[in-house]
Design a protein around this nucleic acid. Structure first.
Lengths: 141, 141
DNA sequence: ACAGTAGTGATAACCATTATCAATTTCAAC
DNA sequence: GTTGAAATTGATAATGGTTATCACTACTGT
């Protein structure tokens, strides 16, 4: 997991990391992979998966589940770790002040006799920029 | 979609519906399919998928996304259509009084310039009955 | 009976993800 | 600068859940 920088360019894993850092949108594995086409050492799909999984596992990246299917990733920005409002079309995300609700979720859950509670809040919609756009089936390009 | 009852027993689709009605737990497609083994006319996996998809599409059934992967179904009980607190192990579910939050979600979202907002709230934990159970990897049996 | 339609099941196709493993690259020691 | 162990990578296969296909069967109305 240490970031080595090969002499003749960034390592594939670094490329993934860097690509992920170019935007604060949520993006899928294949999007990232596609974005890296043409790079000097274009990472394989395997590496993209590995990197994103690792980043998410370590907490450096966060994920949302797409309404259709699949997972989208992005680097966790600063401290705000709350749920996000994600644009279904372009992946743009804005933080939603739900942090206060987390303890409440837990309370509710434990009142019902549940333990080890984990909440997932996902808000999907169409952002302002995409609102006026043709209603194409969002391709998260 | 009309419920025909063949002379020599319930139609496969009805069996799926009836099986789904035997419990208010959330259950996966393969669970339902497995539960129907041994029936006179055991529905195929195809039919189970078809039936559950149709039920969910028509609003008669509701779904949750399992933390790991896959979707679980159950017939929508009465009016309560809010989010549920689902036991990660046995699929037991209890309603959570989040209905009041729905409009708030929408307000927050629209303040951010989003439209057509859809919220997904999912709470997972381990219910009282399963709490004392061995920590096996939940198999939703 | 008969024809038309809907329902069904077996199978193949899909898609995203994970696992495998040989080949490459990197790093540290010599 | 060689050398070799260890980590990284990429091509590919495997997996798991879901959807599509299509021939066959069962039901309905006539």
């Amino acid at each position: 997991m240490n970031e080595r920088a090969p002499l003749r360019g960034l390592s594939p894993r670094s490329l993934v990391h860097r690509e992920l850092a170019t935007s604060d949108r949520f993006r899928t594995v294949s999007e990232i992979h596609r974005s890296l086409a043409g790079q000097r050492r274009r990472p394989s799909l395997s590496t993209v998966y590995r990197t994103l999984t690792a980043l998410a596992g370590s907490g450096l990246a966060e994920t949302v589940h797409l309404p259709a299917s699949g997972i989208a990733y992005r680097l966790r920005p600063g401290q705000g770790r709350g749920p996000y409002l994600v644009c279904m079309r372009c992946g743009a995300a804005t933080a939603v002040p739900l942090a206060d609700l987390a303890p409440w979720f837990r309370t509710v859950a434990e009142q019902q006799g549940f333990t080890g509670v984990e909440a997932r809040v996902e808000l999907w919609g169409r952002c302002g920029s995409c609102r006026n756009t043709v209603n194409e089936n969002g391709s998260h390009s």
